[in-house]
């Protein structure tokens, strides 16, 4: 089975993430990396292909030049090939625009017939968690999301989803789109061999024209939403800190009482 994994290059959450004054988009100048939640999707794809003993994992990203780093990491983990959709006109796209480009890229990468598309549950920057659903809608695929367990076989996917009130089993026929949570596996670290091998793996770079996407349909100008303003939240003022010398708990209750929580 051939699997396509969609991944995102995101600003490192440990760095000072911010917006660009010029157009209110996310500042991509800070250090970026493969979105941590996408590693679970890459890992799961590798496990499926390894267990089946055949098939290839293709990682696809939409992003600026630096997004090649995210693909490199996935190739080092063991993905077979990568597709980088890169085009000036994509800058500032919202989830609607991004999902359009991703859908076209998935179609082109699979000659129009994807078998299984995997994604993480959300990115770690925008954190909307909507691209998997949009992608499924655009590709006309069943959407099987938030998998904490995934089984593929007999032309079907079966997942377990741990919700708030129930643990559900969800089934769909292939081809399908599945998003996975961080509970599904333990992503591998690239081995030295993997790092060396990644250097020889094919990475294709496609433009919007290659995908037949009109530049007017994506990017900041075509976004269906707009950030009107952004403001840094004032840091929280540190309140009172007490050291427990036998009545820390009582002091805590006193604070809660004074704040009318009791």
């Amino acid at each position: 089975m051939n699997i396509v994994v969609c991944v995102k290059y995101v600003p490192d959450a440990q760095s000072d993430r911010t917006f660009q004054e010029s157009d209110n988009t996310v500042d991509r100048a800070v250090d970026g990396l493969l979105s941590e939640l996408d590693e679970y999707a890459v890992e799961e794809a590798l496990k499926i292909v390894e267990a089946a003993g055949d098939g290839e994992v293709t990682v696809v990203t939409v992003g600026p030049e630096a997004a090649a780093d995210a693909l490199k990491k996935a190739l080092q983990m063991g993905a077979h090939k990568a597709v980088h959709v890169q085009d000036e006109a994509i800058h500032g796209s919202d989830a609607v625009g991004t999902s359009l480009v991703l859908a076209k890229a998935v179609e082109k990468a699979t000659d129009g017939s994807p078998e299984l598309v995997l994604t993480g549950m959300s990115s770690t920057d925008g954190v909307m968690g909507v691209v998997p659903a949009m992608l499924a809608e655009r590709l006309g695929l069943p959407q099987v999301t938030y998998a904490s367990e995934l089984t593929v076989g007999d032309g079907r996917v079966t997942i377990r989803r741990d919700g708030d009130v129930a643990s559900e089993t969800i089934e769909a026929a292939l081809p399908a789109l599945v998003s996975v949570t961080d509970q599904i596996n333990e992503p591998r670290y690239p081995s030295f061999k993997g790092i060396m091998a990644a250097k020889k793996k094919p990475v294709e770079t496609w433009s919007l024209a290659d995908l037949g996407v009109d530049a007017g349909d994506v990017g900041l100008g075509a976004a269906w939403t707009s950030v009107v303003a952004f403001a840094k939240r004032p840091p929280r003022e540190q309140g009172q800190i007490v050291t427990d010398e036998g009545e820390g708990g009582a002091k805590l209750a006193e604070f809660l009482s004074a704040q009318k929580f009791l």
Binding site: Q238, G239, Q240, I241, V242, T243, D244, G249, Q259, L262
Partner: peptide, 28 residues
Amino acid sequence: IFELVDFGVVGDLFSVLPQATTEVKKRK
């Protein structure tokens, strides 16, 4: 976490929380 707090207790949760629980119940 202490950078964010309105109130913080530096101490072992296994002694602080039970004491706070007793105190909360008493006050309520």
